[in-house]
């Protein structure tokens, strides 16, 4: 890509990433959550991939790391879900315990959000990476 795109990407990439994390972490307090935040996080990585090419992107996050983080998110989500289903404190988690401006409220909801963020963020990036690698193989 051109110098303009590269420079702008370098300037904005951290902001996009942090905004994704912010959306993730306030999911139990207002609009947002793991899915939306994860998409934004994934977009920041895809941004690098588009601006600097897949080699730079791969250096930041290799395929093995992506798979590891994705399945880690899935395992954490499943564990939290099973724990909460068996302990049966979901009803309260949704309504009673959420306090404004408090990240660590609402019981397990932040854990769900973070796990979903890991899954969606790395998952979308993995899809993009896989397709980029496919097309790169085609050209060779």
């Amino acid at each position: 890509m051109t110098l303009i795109v590269k420079t702008i990407t370098r300037l904005t990439i951290g902001i996009i990433f942090i905004y994704g994390i912010y959306i993730t972490l306030q999911g139990h307090l207002g609009p947002g959550g793991g899915f939306a935040g994860g998409v934004i996080v994934a977009l920041s990585f895809i941004h690098i991939l588009l601006a600097f090419g897949k080699d730079v992107g791969m250096r930041k996050l290799t395929q093995k790391k992506v798979l590891f983080l994705m399945s880690l998110g899935a395992v954490v989500f499943l564990a939290a879900a099973v724990f909460n289903f068996t302990m049966r404190h979901n009803q309260e988690a949704y309504t009673l315990h959420a306090e404004k401006f408090r990240i660590f409220s609402s019981l397990f909801m932040p854990i769900y959000d973070i796990a979903v963020c890991f899954m969606i963020g790395t998952g979308l990036y993995a899809i993009f990476l896989a397709l980029a690698l496919f097309t790169a193989e085609n050209k060779e």
């Binding site: 798979l67 399945s71 899935a74 395992v75």
Partner: peptide, 8 residues
């Protein structure tokens, strides 16, 4: 869980 651990 088994599927996720397999990937993990």
């Amino acid at each position: 869980a088994a599927a996720f651990f397999t990937v993990l």
